Simulated scan of single mutants.
Amino acid sequence: MIPRGNKPANEYSNPNLLLGVFPTLFPYGCGALEDSSRPVQINFREHVRYLLSYGDRRFEEHYSFIFVLFNILQRRTACFHAQLMTSRSYFQQSAQLLETLSSEDVATALLNISKASYSKVSDEKINTLMKHIKVVGGHVMGSAHSRSALRTKVHSLCFNLGLPSLFVTINPVDIHSPVALYFAGVDLDLNRVLPEVLCTSYERAQIIATHPVATAKFFNCLIKSILKCLVLGGVLGPTKAYFGTVESQGRRSLHLHLLIWLKHEYTPAQLKENIQNQDFRDNLLKYLEDVVKEDLDQFRGNTINIV
């Protein structure tokens, strides 16, 4: 156990840290991460993946374990890339400039930013600090700067390939999916799923909420299958490239925003010109109606009530 104190505990190469923080998850005091006595060394991130896949699901269902480990991974990523940046020769000039920065300067800049009156050229020292924070933050999962880095990649694809042909949002409803329940450990025969064997809506929502790892695995499996069939399988036609980002919504379920570049030689100007032609418009509508549809006519007359 780690005793209480006012001195922060070292989170690097400290196998006793998580043993002390989560004694109920490691009741026998063994199985620690980054344990140097282990014959085969395991990467920290991969060890976390292993723990979250435990059969008894105690790590997955713990109320804070995932958040603490995610925060540790964020800090390690930030420290690693900050170390790389400070080791570059060009950083010496920035370091000399940042040494003259005071806490009052930072407080003033934060106040101006909160009022949306911050000018990018108003203070060279603040600009230098923000530039380095953006570089490091672009590698940190879940940060605002990482989203900014994704926008840069999208812009690069647009410059290289032109505007995307399709924008697709895939938002699976996990609380109504038998596959998601199966990933969460519910005993279901996926070849014969009947409404009467499913839980109520409240029970399904409760299961999904308490099994975030299983829900993420379900989402990953579903999206991979959709991309394999829809994009790589050629359902939409020959594809030059695609780019997707995953977001969470209000109830923290996942959805995907996807940009798809189809393999055609039309520029936006050519499309605008050709759209004036009636035959071209008709063919375009036929294509869109063929690849984008939600058709339940085959189930017409069949009533299925799912509580």
Rank of each mutant, 00 (worst) to 15 (best):
S13V: 09
N14K: 00
P15I: 02
L17C: 05
G20V: 03
G20M: 01
V21A: 03
P23M: 02
T24G: 06
P27T: 10
E34T: 07
N43E: 14
N43V: 08
N43G: 13
E46Y: 11
H47S: 10
R49V: 10
Y50R: 04
L52P: 15
Y54G: 14
G55F: 11
E60P: 14
S64V: 07
I66W: 09
I66D: 06
V68C: 06
L69Y: 09
F70R: 01
N71E: 14
N71K: 14
I72N: 02
R75S: 14
M85L: 15
T86N: 05
F91A: 01
S94N: 05
A95K: 00
A95C: 11
L97Q: 01
E104N: 06
L111I: 10
Y118E: 00
K120D: 13
D123L: 05
D123P: 06
K134Y: 14
G137V: 03
G137P: 09
H139D: 10
K153M: 12
H155I: 08
L161C: 06
L161Q: 01
L163A: 12
N171K: 12
N171D: 15
V179T: 14
A180T: 07
F183K: 01
V193C: 07
P195A: 02
I207E: 00
I207S: 02
I208A: 03
T210E: 06
T210I: 05
V213F: 13
V213I: 15
C221D: 13
I223R: 00
I226F: 14
K228G: 07
V231T: 00
G234F: 14
G234H: 04
Y242V: 02
T245H: 09
E247C: 10
R251M: 12
R252P: 06
L254I: 04
L254W: 11
H257N: 03
L258D: 01
L259I: 03
I260T: 02
I260E: 00
E265A: 06
P268D: 05
L271E: 02
E273G: 05
N274R: 09
N277W: 08
F280L: 01
R281A: 15
L284C: 15
D290V: 05
L296T: 13
D297A: 15
N302I: 08
T303K: 06
I304F: 13
V307N: 04
